[in-house]
Write a protein that binds this DNA or RNA. Structure first.
Length: 407
RNA sequence: GGGCAGGUAGCGAAGCGGUCAAACGCAUCAGACUGUAAAUCUGACGGCUCAUGCCUUCGGAGGUUCGAAUCCUUCCCUGCCCA
């Protein structure tokens, strides 16, 4: 029923950052095999940001591998914490959500997560189920099980404390709340990014406190975003969304710096370890990284869409960037003749291709605007008197403008 | 509760009565180069304007002044020290 220990460990260890402690994991797996009982593999999800990107997929893919080995995936939607609003990571306080919003986001999250996860061996819980029932006395009891000094060990807190940045009391409660989730569902393994290490370890401590066997903490590397520097995140706009169109996945992937090719292959695709070695070798031997990256981009599109989409995305990309032609499926706008402004400059802001008139002026002055391939020379240039034309703004914003009377 | 230091454009950070739409760095956008890049170079980077210029910004609200991001009052927020 379950693969052997060695087979399982091989699969599980690929790409991971740390398994703490590894012996415990081996022991749990052995027992699972012997008793024919799947392990509970926990993953906490933040419903305040339900748009999943490839960064999330790193951990989700690991969870999927556990599923394929026959174990039980348990998604915990952190609706309770989202309702309070977590300001951690200093800057802005996240908006608090209503119960309905968290449910809705949770549903969205689930839908997107299942693009990666298997529909079998999966269950989902909202942590308000147990956290919402705790009385203040329970919370105090919970808080008494951990000390300030140990909390401050967390890297994030240490840094902020030293830098004189604010840390709210309730931020100390988040790791404890997350740990309570592990207690509630009796997690055997909890997955997370390396930035979750502390929280995952608190889970171990708390499970012990509550008389359970501690979970194994398994951390995955943080995926670097399309800028090749920062962690992939929506707010930095260096992400590739799992719901992005084939065109976007392909284009964004190709824009990633070459240094990310191997890590992305390792963390985001199913290429075998042997292939990974081969890819490394061929890059070292001087293969044009572009070709390897094209393969990466195709692989990713195929993963979230289909092989056909991958091929189409590549053709489209070549058409736009190599042949400098226009894409296949242009956005179109139809304007009645009396809606057409006198200048291209005005047209840009009217069509929202520029955020403001100043922005439109800048784009034109800097030579970033073309009409049917002809550069727009000045901000007073009139809109061409054609029935339709293609407006290109910057490198990749296109709009087909059709001028015709309203029916 | 008391003392001190702070809150400036997306972020970081100068400025401390006029020459401030506000230096500089990062991020961003456009152009050149290229492999689609990355790196590099050039330019832009509050809004309106062909332009001279005008309008709205320096935590909030008042005030002093011909003139305030800069001074005063007060309120809010943050950090540190003392209690």
């Amino acid at each position: 029923m379950f693969p052997t220990l060695n087979v399982q460990m091989d699969v599980i260890k690929r790409g991971v950052s740390e398994i703490i402690p590894e012996e415990d994991l081996a022991r749990k797996i052995e027992r699972s095999i012997a008793s024919k009982t799947p392990l509970n593999i926990k993953l906490g999800c933040d419903p305040s940001r339900p748009d999943l990107h490839l960064g999330h997929s790193v951990v989700l893919r690991k969870l999927r591998q556990f599923q394929e080995l026959g174990h039980q995936a348990i998604l915990i939607i952190g609706d309770f914490t989202a309702m309070i609003g977590d300001p951690s990571g200093k800057s802005k306080t996240r908006p608090s959500l209503t119960l309905e919003e968290t449910r809705q986001n949770g549903q969205t999250y689930f839908e997107q997560a299942t693009k990666v996860l298997s529909a079998k061996n999966i269950s989902m819980f909202y942590n308000s189920e147990w956290l919402g029932k705790m009385a203040f006395a329970d919370v105090i009891r919970l808080a008494s099980k951990y000390t300030v000094a140990r909390m401050l060990e967390r890297d994030d807190f240490t840094i902020r404390y030293k830098a004189g940045e604010p840390i709210s009391i309730h931020e100390f409660l988040y790791p404890l709340a997350q740990a309570m989730d592990s207690v509630a569902i009796k997690a055997d393994v909890e997955l997370g990014g390396t930035d979750q290490k502390f929280n995952l370890l608190v889970g171990r401590d708390l499970q012990r406190e509550y008389g359970l066997e501690p979970q194994v903490a398994l951390t995955m590397p943080i995926l670097t975003g399309t800028d090749g520097v920062e962690k992939m995140s929506k707010s930095l706009d260096n992400y590739v969304g799992v719901s992005d169109t084939p065109k976007d996945i392909y284009g964004k992937t190709l824009r990633v710096p070459d240094t990310q090719i191997v890590p992305w292959f390792e963390l985001l695709t199913d290429v075998t370890n042997a292939e990974l070695v081969a890819i490394r070798k061929s890059l070292a031997a001087g293969t044009n990284p572009r070709d390897v990256k094209r393969r990466l981009a195709r692989t990713l599109v195929a993963l979230y869409h289909s092989d056909d989409d991958a091929r189409a995305a590549e053709e489209e990309f070549d058409r736009i960037f190599i042949q400098k032609s226009v894409p296949d499926d242009l956005d179109e706008t139809t304007l009645a003749p009396d809606e057409v402004p006198p200048t291209t400059h005005a047209l840009l802001s009217q069509l929202k291709l520029a955020a403001s008139n100043s922005e439109a002026r800048r784009l034109i002055e800097q030579g970033g605007v073309t009409i049917d391939g002809e550069k727009v020379g000045g901000i007073h240039d009139p809109v061409p008197s054609k029935a339709e034309f293609v407006l290109k703004v910057g490198k990749r914003r296109f709009m087909k403008v059709i001028i015709s009377p309203r029916p």
